[in-house]
């Protein structure tokens, strides 16, 4: 245990706005919180809600960095709040909701709707009309390394950090983002999904898909799961160019 010393007083500035309150306008509000050992922004925000302002809105679910609910801008950078230790930050901390998503209030955003539209648009499920599921039979075999590679891409938690960190989407709101491209890479890698390259091309072979990316790669910098977004986007782009040349 570290030696006792006077705890810091954190100054937490929060961008607040209640869209359901016609009187309200977006404004910053600062709360002072005494730092404790091992304190995370999850603890900070709950303390504010419980002891300072019970109307403060934010989204935590697992509070363990697993579910992807609590993404927000911490000092301007998209990240998961629950696993952000205050000890790693300066005593002045600003928090704001992730941009681009519909605001529910304060730090609470409607990522679910955005992600659902994305998943429906890209049809992020196994497409297989050849094999009937037979639950009594042995499962289809898969190379162990391939299963591991798919899992690697399957680790995305749809937190939206890559969307908030994306330069392209600022100008092109229909852009599927790294989250979308990563999902396509995941299904493309999966032999259980029988979609052809040409079918994938239909989904992402345009400027709202893989050709829209300006390669600023803010996505890779902010991804809390360290997904290999850069290499997957590059791979998809090469594959899509090949496919388009074959098609012509």
């Amino acid at each position: 245990m570290s030696k006792e010393k006077t705890p810091r007083i954190l100054k937490i500035g929060i961008l607040r706005f209640d869209p359901h309150d016609p009187e309200d306008v977006p404004h910053m509000e600062t709360f002072e919180i005494e730092e404790s050992d091992g304190m995370t922004l999850y603890i900070v925000l709950n303390e504010i809600r419980e002891h300072h302002d019970n109307s403060l809105k934010f989204d935590f679910v697992c509070r363990a960095g697993i579910c992807g609910s609590c993404s927000m801008l911490v000092n301007g950078r998209p990240t998961l709040a629950c696993r952000t230790l205050t000890s790693k930050l300066d005593e002045n901390i600003t928090l704001a909701p992730l941009p681009l998503f519909e605001l529910i209030g304060d730090l609470s955003i409607y990522t679910g709707k955005w992600m659902r539209n994305l998943n429906e648009h890209l049809e992020t499920w196994i497409h297989d009309k050849e094999n009937e599921l037979e639950v009594d039979k042995l499962e289809e075999k898969m190379e162990p390394e391939l299963a591991d590679e798919i899992y690697e891409l399957d680790r995305c938690v749809e937190c939206g950090c890559c969307v908030a960190g994306c330069g392209t989407i600022q100008m092109r709101p229909e852009f599927v983002g790294a989250v979308g491209l990563n999902k396509i890479a995941r299904y493309h890698l999966d032999p259980r999904d029988k979609r052809t390259n040409a079918e994938y091309y239909e989904l992402i072979g345009d400027e709202d898909g893989v050709f829209g990316c300006m390669t600023l790669l803010g996505c890779e910098d902010v991804c809390p799961k360290d997904l290999p977004l850069q290499s997957k986007i590059a791979y998809l782009r090469r594959m899509m160019i090949k496919t388009s040349m074959k098609n012509n």
Binding site: W125, D128, E140, K141, M142, D148, I150, D190
Partner: peptide, 19 residues
Amino acid sequence: APKAIRELAHWGVPWSRVQ
């Protein structure tokens, strides 16, 4: 339980495999 896991394999869960 074996049926449920095989169903999930069919739907895309990348279960870790025997080497």
